[in-house]
Design a protein around this nucleic acid. Sequence first.
RNA 1: CGGGACGUAGCGCAGCCUGGUAGCGCAUCCGCUUUGGGAGCGGAGGGUCGCAGGUUCAAAUCCUGCCGUCCCGACCA
Length: 583
Amino acid sequence: MGNDPAVHWRLPSAPRGSSVRLSGRFWPTLRDAPADAEAISHKLMVRAGLVRQLASGLYSFLPFGLRSLQRVTAIIREEMDHIGAQEVQLPVMHPAEIWEATGRYGLDEQFALKDRGGREMVLGMTHEEIITWHAAREIRSYRDLPQSWYQFQTKLRDEPRPKSGILRVREFTMKDSYSLDVDEAGLDKSYDAHAAAYARIFDRCGLVWYMVESDVGMMGGMGAHEYMAPSTAGEDTIARAPSGSYSANVELAVSIAREPDFGATPAAYEAFATPGIGSIDDLSAFTGLAAARLAKSVVLVGDDGPVLAIVRGEHDVHEKKIAHLIGRHRPAQPDEIQEWFGAAPGSLGPIGVSRVRIIVDQTIITGHYVTGANRDGEHLRGVVFGRDFTGEVADIRTVLEGEGAPETGEPLILEPVIEIGNIFKLGTKYSIPLDAKYLSADGHEQPIVMGSYGIGPARVLAAAIEQSNDEAGIVWPKALAPFDVHMVLVGDAESPQAQFADTLFNELSDMGFAVLLDDRPGTKPGEKFVEAELLGCPIRVTIGKRTLPDGPLEVQVRRDRQAHDIPLEGAAQALHALWQGLR
RNA sequence: CGGGACGUAGCGCAGCCUGGUAGCGCAUCCGCUUUGGGAGCGGAGGGUCGCAGGUUCAAAUCCUGCCGUCCCGACCA
């Protein structure tokens, strides 16, 4: 500290990294995006010289892209350390036996290979097994708990369809952490600590994000949340209430359905002819009834045989929700449907069906419906659940935009999102099969209660770009930009402008700014400006003829592209003040 | 896994249908001019037309197979 005048100005946020003079550096930009790039973040990351593709789902980070990635990881590391987590590094390649122990060996997404001795190995998709394996050997007593261990490590997944640049890839770095606790109360504390850290991380990264309830998967689990950054490039959809009172992945979202006016319930159902009617839309038009008053019958084939799923016509059966009930399944083929129901898809219904498991969405238990008669060209009206047919009742439908939030009834918003992180209460799912136990205070062996927590740093970058860009390029949140200040030198190396730029470069760097000085000789000013806006650092400073001898210094804020004139005297401090006001 | 498209110079594309010397823009290199919003003029280099086989006197072009990449859907610990 001492008397160094720069210390007073040292920036308080994430490590700033070093400043760079651009001349001679590797920064390949492109005027055009690759033809196969679709997502905005994909196009901009390639054009701005941040990444390059090696093969499908495999990306290399170039120097400037790596700087941004390192800023994300620095923020994550700070916040993980802040909650007392300890950083480790686990191998990428694992013996297959460990994965066999938890029944996760041989998954389609798993890269597998043999070593020279013929030993089966896998490349890690994640590291629950490995953490648990170590915990089983090192944790003996409740006195050794709780623990939280984290790492930044490469994950490999043989994705069926890599897409959208770095959003869905086959190899990526993940921050994954794992909590080890004596009981569920301990897990809750670890879980909450991670949730708090995640909130700080995503706020600091400048993202718009939601924490939503997420599917715990078919293995049970004890609760899970996902962190979602809204973006049209996202592959997931969430349902949320505008007030924030409710938000969930549509995979498990529930809602209050709109109730149609059913009118009086008939004393009995009756058949009527529906020649050529095969879809809900047709049937709705034919009968003049809203789709919500029609029952949609969907036939699925699970491991235990055929299943008839029934939802209102306006709804769809949700793949994940039904999977919780019947496990792996596929849509039935038309010939199978003919065999089981004696009718084609389009005239199916629950009445008169035997030997087929019937699962009915909750919405169906009220009202009376038009259903298929299981005879081609014929439907039934006035069909009432409980009176005319039965089945298991469950929530198996998708949520529709505008339906009511479960607590408040507010109209739900459906929004596409990028999953940037998740937190998961594992419980003893891994500790029991891998025999990770501790001895409790009263002398009993107990399984360790675990949680796992992931963040994809590269997805954080892509989400930030998706959320913040304009026609000129990236508009980085200031925490993630590869540089804080992008200086454009207009003038050759011997000019007074160059000398002034050098002085300011050093002064800003000493203050803790990461500065990029575009001192490339022979590059036209216009090209420098265009490339600066493509790269998207928060502040651009132009040093040219107009700057000297009396100023002012020309400064552009990237986000609003507003020009600011700053007196030369005290320019560095003024820039610092400007920078602090940015987000 | 189902459906669709594409693969020609570093990037973006034309040429293919109707077979006959491989082109354009940008980028790169050299020279001159230029120097505050992707410069101008002149010159130059760079391509086994994804791979293999077939048809043909002759294949970027037609046929077959394979590989790669992207998009839609399915799938996604």
